[in-house]
């Protein structure tokens, strides 16, 4: 098990390094960064001064190494727009996004797994049809529209929850539902397909032949095998939710990291974008790593040779 974790960790570090190199090179893809900072019509002296100050004239590899070292120390450069450390800006916003992401994935899992299991236990039954309907709708409705509908019904008409902001837990209810519902269909369908396959496996027949209680057959023997691919999918969805929650954050005026990314793009604030990409990727890598470890813990074939 330890070997497996070390191996996965090594891989994660390699991926992280690759991502960091890509996100660093972003700075140079948009043309001469000194011109970007100084503005389109800046004088040649200003550009030279900026080049001098940021060290853009040094070899790229040296700059990358330099940047990597400071990144490791927690220094991801300063925002061109606010002239503040990017880590400070992102740190303020990340809390909201993480809260939303975690709530949404929990919502999605709590909705999708029981429905997927119920649908698989009685395929083509009413429950199965209902689950299919819910997942098709979830896949088809754009989240901005679904979000607006929820606001109209629950905030404006019924006045149950606030429509925008992030000052209390109530503010997170609607965004969680919208973002979580978006992730539900894939997880539910995978759970259903996995359960259907596992339930017809020989070892389930063995479990029944042992006279085990149906609950035990279903949850101990079937679900554990069916859930393994779902864990990997959930990790990917979670990573996606962090970076991809821009739409939902905008609708509910949650000032999270996704919203910040959108703002930074329109402000051409490269250091913040760069730092956000790095942070999102690191979380992505972290979730994938955790999913791998969890999978290995669940499936002995992965950890014992």
């Amino acid at each position: 098990m330890l070997l497996y974790i070390l191996k996965r960790l090594g891989l994660a570090v390699l991926v992280a390094l690759t991502v960091s190199a890509l996100s660093f090179s972003l700075l140079f893809m948009a043309g001469d960064p000194a011109i970007s900072i100084a503005g389109e019509n800046a004088a040649a002296e200003d550009i030279a001064a900026i080049t001098e100050r940021y060290g853009f004239d040094r070899p790229v590899l040296v700059q990358y190494a330099d940047w990597l070292v400071s990144a490791a120390r927690g220094d991801l450069g300063r925002s061109w727009y606010f002239d503040l450390p990017t880590t400070e800006i992102i740190g303020d916003r990340l809390g909201v996004t993480m809260t939303l992401g975690l709530l949404a994935i929990c919502f999605a899992l709590l909705l999708a797994i029981p429905m997927g299991v119920a649908a698989a236990v009685k395929p083509n039954s009413l429950i199965d049809r209902a689950a299919l309907f819910i997942s098709v709708v979830g896949q088809a409705i754009p989240s901005f529209w679904f979000g607006l509908i929820l606001i109209v019904v629950f905030s404006i008409k019924l006045g149950l929850v606030p429509a925008s902001g992030s000052s209390s837990w109530k503010h997170f209810i609607l965004p969680t539902v919208v973002l979580g519902y978006y992730a539900t269909p894939a997880i539910m369908r995978l759970t259903r397909a996995g359960m259907l396959e596992v339930l017809s496996a020989d070892y389930i027949r063995t479990a029944r032949a042992k006279g085990l209680a149906p609950r035990k057959v279903l949850f101990k023997h079937a679900l554990r095998n069916a859930i393994i691919p779902v864990i990997s999918l959930a990790a990917v969805q979670m990573g996606f939710m962090l970076g991809g929650s821009i739409v939902v954050e905008s609708i509910f005026a949650l000032h999270g990291a996704g919203y910040l990314a959108w703002e930074s793009i329109s402000r051409n604030d490269l250091p913040v974008m760069q730092a956000l990409i790095l942070v999102f990727s690191m979380f992505y890598i972290l979730f994938t790593f955790l999913a791998d470890v969890l999978n290995a813990w669940m499936d002995p074939r992965l950890r014992v040779g």
């Binding site: 020989d202 070892y203 479990a207 029944r208 042992k210 006279g211 095998n225 002995p300």
Partner: peptide, 25 residues
């Protein structure tokens, strides 16, 4: 019937490779 299975009557299957749950010892 389930209560009888395992206790009073038991079964051995054809395919030993897939008859055991891979997740448990």
């Amino acid at each position: 019937h389930s209560k009888l299975r395992g206790r009073r009557m038991a079964m051995i299957f054809q395919e030993p490779m897939s008859a055991l749950n891979p997740c448990y010892t």
